[in-house]
Structure formats: C-alpha cells, structure tokens
Design a binder for these strands. Sequence first.
DNA 1: GAGGTTAGTGACACCCAGTGCCACCGGGCA
DNA 2: TGCCCGGTGGCACTGGGTGTCACTAACCTC
Lengths: 194, 194
Amino acid sequence: MDVRADTRARLQQAALELFTRTGFEQVTADEIADAAGTSRRTFFRCFATKADAVWGEFGAHVARLERLLAATREDQPVLASICAAYVEVNDYADGDLPILRQRMALILGEPALQAHAQVRYADVDRVVAEHVARRLGQTPDALLPRLVATSTRAAATTAFEVWLADGTTTLAAALHAAFDQLALGFPDLRPPSA
Amino acid sequence: MDVRADTRARLQQAALELFTRTGFEQVTADEIADAAGTSRRTFFRCFATKADAVWGEFGAHVARLERLLAATREDQPVLASICAAYVEVNDYADGDLPILRQRMALILGEPALQAHAQVRYADVDRVVAEHVARRLGQTPDALLPRLVATSTRAAATTAFEVWLADGTTTLAAALHAAFDQLALGFPDLRPPSA
DNA sequence: GAGGTTAGTGACACCCAGTGCCACCGGGCA
DNA sequence: TGCCCGGTGGCACTGGGTGTCACTAACCTC
C-alpha cells in the first residue's frame, strides 16, 4: 500500500527541477512521471497534489516544531520561545541550502503554490496557537493565541522572502530581525515621520 | 465582451447559497449555472474560478483601501492609519452583515477557499506595503513594509475569525483589539507567566 | 424597414488534475 | 509449485477551466 522511498525521492527531484525550469503551471503530472521513469498514477500515490511534490517532509517539520515548543522553559517570553523554535526548525546544513532556496523560491513565487501553502501553514498556526494558549491559560481559538500564531508565521514568511531576495543575510538573522520588530510593536515606525 | 451585471449577480447569489448549503467542493459549476438559469460557459466568463464567485467586488474593495491609505494624515502613527483604513473598508451596513457572515464563513472555513484567499490577499498586502514604504522612505520589498503588511493582514483575518465565531462583538471592535495587541508588541504575554 | 455591427450567450471539443478500479509482476513463504 | 501481497501501470471517469464558433437580440446607419 505504501510507496517505495526512492520512487518518491525521484519524483520529488524531477518535480522540483521541472517546476523551476518551466514554471509550475506549465508542467503536467505526466511529464514529471516520465522524467522520474514512472507513471502518472504512481505520482499521485506519492503526492496527493501536484503542489505537494514541492513540500519535502513538511509533516515531520511541523511535528518537530511542536516538540520544540512543548519543551520551552516557562520563564522564557512567549514570542522568544516561538522565534527560537522557528530558528531551530529552519537550521539547515549548508549543503541543503540550495534545495531550500529552490523550494522556497517556488512556494513564494508561484501563485498556485502560494495558495497551497496556506493549507500547509494552517497546521503550523494550530501548533503555535496551542502553545500560546497553554502558556496563557486560554483556549486556542481565543483572539490572542490565534493572533500570535498568524502574525508570527507572517513574520517567518517575510523573513524567508527577504532572505531569498537578499542573499547576504542569514535565515536566522532575518527571522530574529522580523521577530524583534514584532515583539516591540514595530518601534521603527513609532515616531510620526513628519 | 463583458458580462451582463444581473447574470453575474444571479450566479454569485446561487453560488453562495449552494456552497453554504452543500459545501464548496460538492457543488459543480454546472449546478451553479443551472440554479442561476444560465450555462456553465457563462459562469466561467463571469468568474475566472469557482472560488472567485464567493468574493464580491473585492477589486473595488482593495482600490478603496488604497485610496484611504493615500489620504492618511502624516502625523498619525502608521499602524493606526492602517487599522483605521481596515475598519472603514469593512464598515458594512447592518443589512449587509448576513451576506458578509456567509461569505466569510465560507472563506475562512473551506480549505479550498482559504487557499484561494491567499492570492486575493496578496493585492491587499502590496497596497499596505507600499503605504508603509512611502511613510518610511523605504522600498516596498524591504523587511519592515512587508512585515507590517502581512502581520496587519494577519490581525485583520484573526479579527474576522473571532467576530464570526463570537457573534456578540462588533467587527470594528475585534479589529481594534487585534491591532492594539499588535501595536504594543503583545503586552498581554510579556510577563513570564511562571 | 433592410442590412450590418456588436455584446452576450450557449454548445461543443479539448486539456489536465485527481480518483477508483482492476490487472500485472515480483518476491517471500509454505 | 502454488499462494499471498505490496508496489505498480493502465484505463476510464469526474470536474475545473479554456478556445472556438454559431446564434440572437439590440442598436446603428442608410
């Protein structure tokens, strides 16, 4: 019932390559399957959606984020704990950075993939909101847990965008810069600029 | 080349109705067209996507937001100006609230529509980022303008969610509550809770 | 009032994503 | 050798979205 790991890996690699070269919408599932030396039917057994081929092991990613948040020390400020967890989860080895760049360029650049990302990010938001709710003694669907979850994810996404566009800064540095702004209520735009 | 306004209105109404009753994925474009007394082909001339039938005149909405932001006084804090613009754009007459609730329940509840929303919201983000960039003398793709745009939209979305789930608070009140938290750097979770 | 233009529409054919179903193939196992 | 079973390929089908053409009704001109 399951899928052989190398078949999945070949499909993922082929998909990433073709999407980057030709554009997400232009590539058909048949072409990916051909490039990976397998069939269209097998592609859709590995990935529920064409878009899912771009996301590696994102489920494991979210699970790891959840564990990190659960292990947070109580005396650490909540935003700092979330920032630290985001930084740790996204601490890739140098050798993995090119693939990460390729993946994120697609996700942040292709409209269809941006849309799909929303569904995947909903899991992240849920995990973060539960963490905040636990720390605050509120329910996860109250205003504050929800708001912290969505705005910290907004910060993380923005950090990824500038990291991707810039090329000189570290991903960790970009994440810290974004979270600092958020945690301080955007001090840089506090003084009326006139 | 254009589409008759009442055809579009009938289709939109039928779509909203059917989506709410049966669920977005369960309704086919044919069924919507039949319910509106027209053809499938005409449906796709009115709306590029099945999902687009849920969004009313969202383009006009964004344009109005842009005008409001452009007319902002220079001595008003940036976040306050954005909050005021969001509140004003979402200041519906009481008679329009039921339709708004219906629309937002679909957009926030159906995964496929959540995904599609990301594409529409990208326009909002661009407009807000340009406003912030103008006020700060930065480019719209710098960290701070992007971050303010995405996190204020996160705040607005969260406000919509609690407004929808709650039923007692005003939309304006929910927006102000969310923006206040954001502008102050989440003071409610500042003290280490231990 | 006849003839031409034009916008809106409907009908049909097509491409492609995604799914259900079944047949096949290869390897472990009695 | 015969059986079982996980991975796979082929096939047909649904449904979203598009390009094309033919039709119709209004409007305009002579």
